Simulated assay, not measured.
Amino acid sequence: MKEYERKQLLERVEREGATVGADIPETIDVQGESIDLREFVFEIKRRDTVPAGERDRVDRAKKNLRRERLQRKQLLEEGDVTRAEGEELVNAIVGIDRALNALQNLGPTDLEREEQAQEAADRKRWMSFLKQALGRDDASSRGRL
């Protein structure tokens, strides 16, 4: 493949709207294991929230997909590939990006954890407010010792 062709393919991968209209691959080999990617993504997206048991599976899948995307992009950048192989790599990378976008945009994965985080943030704001209102914030109390 000529260098300008390689640059064109890489540009397609990095284009802002590259995933618009792209299909999630039916299956994909990730780390030597064949995964039914489309089925997995649609199975997860059908739910309103991801249960705690599935959250680890989704996080692991996203991590593996990111790793696979990087490897394929590096092969496209540096590998000795033909134009046809480059096209296949670009389609696979864009499909992985599409799957990652779908998995990233899931709703809250754990309502209980999110509620606890919200309560902790509320308590922290309340304590900060009380310290300021009572004149006991860190800056003013240091000078009183």
Rank of each mutant, 00 (worst) to 15 (best):
E5P: 00
V94R: 04
R46G: 09
F42Y: 10
R142Y: 06
R57D: 09
L111E: 12
E87A: 05
R123G: 00
S140Q: 10
P108A: 13
E39F: 12
Q118G: 03
G107N: 10
R6K: 09
G21P: 02
T109F: 08
L76P: 02
R69V: 01
R125G: 00
E16N: 06
E114P: 01
V90W: 06
A52V: 15
E11K: 10
D59S: 14
R55D: 11
D29W: 06
G95M: 05
D29T: 15
A92F: 08
D137Y: 04
E77Y: 05
Q71H: 02
L70C: 06
A133G: 13
E77G: 02
L10T: 08
D29P: 01
E43K: 14
R125T: 09
Q74C: 01
R136H: 09
N91C: 04
A117Y: 10
F129L: 13
K131E: 12
T27R: 11
V58I: 11
V58G: 05
Q31F: 07
E26Q: 14
E114V: 01
F129Q: 07
A18T: 07
E88Y: 05
M127A: 12
I44L: 01
G32S: 07
I44M: 10
N91V: 00
E77V: 01
V50A: 04
V90Y: 00
A18N: 11
V58W: 08
I93S: 07
V94N: 01
R55Y: 11
I44A: 10
E16S: 08
E112F: 15
A120R: 15
N101T: 04
T109N: 10
R123C: 00
D56L: 14
D36L: 13
D48C: 01
A52G: 04
A102E: 13
E85Q: 10
I28C: 03
R83W: 08
A102D: 06
L37T: 09
D122Y: 11
L103E: 01
E14A: 15
F42G: 07
